[in-house]
Amino acid sequence: MFAYIIKRLLSGVIVVILVSMAVFALFWYGPSSPARPICLAETGNRCTPDRLENYEEQLGYNNNIVDEYGNYAKGIFTGREMPIGNVVIDCDRPCLGFSHRSRALVWDELVERLPATISVAVGGAFLYLALGIPIGVAAARRRGTLGDKLLVSSFLFLSSVPYYLFALLAWLYFTLIWQVPILGSSGYTPITDNPAEWFKGMLLPWLCLGIFGCTQYTRYTRGAMVETLSEDYIRTAKAKGLPPSTVVYRHGLRSALVPVVTVFGIDLGVLLAGTIFTERIFEIQGIGRWGLSAVQAFDLPVVSATALFGAILIVISNLIVDVIYSVLDPRVRLS
């Protein structure tokens, strides 16, 4: 299994490198010059073609793309010095570049925003499972009954509402109209500053993500569980005289979890890479909002950094899913 993990990590590195190259090239050859944001910022929105040309020259956008990508990649591992205007910025490793919009090092901004995104993602993902799996199991055990049908159809309805509408309405009602005290102050406070405020601020975003996301986990779990409960080995477990809870959870759920884990691994990676709608609606300064505004402002260093970060998360979460597979199912031998 160790050799397998190493092999997968190596192929993951290749994926991450390819993603970073693709994003770099996309902006380099894109419709707007990557130097425009800094030009606008430095000249107070009076960016003439001459000045733009000047900034492009300074930032190296007139050089060969291969060399510039090389500089960028090298900077991640060794750090580099970046001359901008008449100052030289010392960018320590891992150097992901300098955001001209916010006049800050990209790495520092990433580190600053990461705790907010992790808070949202981990809480939301926890609720995906904590709500989705038990509800799915309960529905599977009562399949075909009125309660099961009501649950399945209401969850289908819920999951067909666009998420941004769902979250926006939740925010509108809980925060503005009803002003529910504990849900009313959504936003991010660092947990190290004030754990209670952190929790209060995160509660509504968590519930929105969790309740909306758990609908699909309920569906997956219910489907997998219905299938598992009709397996021969479940009949064997009953014939042994085991109590129903042991039959359902120990013998049934462990098999039914395999497909659920697959989806969850990917979802967790996506959540950690930034939850754009959630962060936007609940005013949380996380990776998702940062990446979105960077795209709008052609802020290449930030876009590259968020894309790289997302790719790394997806690669790692896929690997973790594979390892969990082999733990759940002894027939899976990772090699």
Binding site: Y233, T236, A239, K240, G241, L242
Partner: peptide, 23 residues
Amino acid sequence: LRKLRGNSVAMIFQDALAALHPF
């Protein structure tokens, strides 16, 4: 029923690969 099952009455099934839990 649980007191009987597997205790004074036991059942063995065909296709033991499917009837034993793979995990």
